[in-house]
Simulated scan of single mutants.
Amino acid sequence: MPLRTSRALGLVLGAALDAAFGDPRRGHPVAGFGRAARSLEGRLWADSRRRGAVFTGIAVGVPVVLAAALERRATNPVVRTVLTAAATWAVLGARSLAVEGRVMAALLADAEGDGDLGPARERLSHLAGRDPAGLDAAGLSRASVESLAENTSDAVVAPLLWGAVAGVPGLVGYRAVNTLDAMVGHRSLRYERFGWASARLDDVANFLPARVSAALAALAGRRPSASLVAWRRDAGQHPSPNAGPVEAAFAGALGLRLGGANVYAGRVEDRGYLGDGRPPARPDLERAVRLSVAVDALAVLLAGGVAWVLGRRR
């Protein structure tokens, strides 16, 4: 096996491992990175963009340098393939995302029988960061569909594309950036300045992958023209420059209307509507999961193809 094909094969094998086994239950590398980053934050935190930029540079730079050193030493094609597959498996979240979507659908189905939304509200934190206390079944359904759309890009398409272009350092670096954004990139008194660099870096890292994800959603869905129209017309109404295109494309593909007012830690964020259809209901979660899985499959093929072409050119 030539070394130039090891990246493409490793990406495909890693995606297959994620599809078969999902995230490791213990000792997950991303969780370990999160603990290390939290410790570093405790040493560097200050209400300062400059200190936040230093934090982001160290927290992303160190794993990338280590990953690059490992990949450079892996001169045997089989070893390089195994390393790429392991890194891909560690950073992808396709199976876990689909499982969470189906679990939420099951909990909402149970609530239709007994009227108890408590378990579904508690479970929402596995998918979305918004406050579930005031959400009814329709609100929980919308939050879940929107999160499935956004995380299809963040947890699957983006890491695969970065892996295709930059190999193991790209996989590791992207996951570090995305994890830091989840940790410190949100707006709050503590992170308004300190988390600014992490949030902006995540915006840059996801700019192209989010638009590729939107295009794949249009291709994978049954309403490609409606998906493209919603993406072009409505994406700008979303406060996130990258979540907007993906959620709008999913809304059009599923024939739904997403968006509206969300509550995050007591802060109300009123965004425009995405798509022309009806608001999501519980059965739409299964449809959203199927669309997400279809986008995942296309992303694996695309990333493998890009890696193979780039490998031949190298």
Rank of each mutant, 00 (worst) to 15 (best):
R123N: 08
S188R: 14
Y174S: 03
R313M: 09
V103M: 07
L97P: 05
L291T: 03
V309R: 13
R175W: 08
G113M: 07
M183G: 02
H186N: 09
L124N: 04
N262H: 05
T88A: 00
F33D: 00
V306D: 00
V295C: 06
L258F: 14
R102P: 09
L3P: 06
T5M: 09
R222A: 15
P224Y: 01
A297Y: 02
A94F: 05
T5K: 02
L70A: 14
D110M: 03
F194T: 03
G129Y: 05
L124W: 06
R287C: 01
G14W: 04
E146Y: 02
A226F: 06
A218M: 14
S225N: 03
A199H: 05
V91A: 04
R287V: 04
F21G: 14
L274E: 13
E71G: 04
R73W: 13
L97T: 02
A155P: 07
E150T: 07
A106F: 08
T56S: 00
E41V: 15
P119Q: 07
A87E: 06
A294T: 10
V78D: 00
E71D: 06
N151D: 10
G163M: 10
V293R: 15
R222G: 12
W45G: 07
R222T: 12
N206L: 15
R38M: 09
V177P: 04
N76W: 07
V293T: 12
L11V: 09
G101S: 09
G244A: 08
A226H: 09
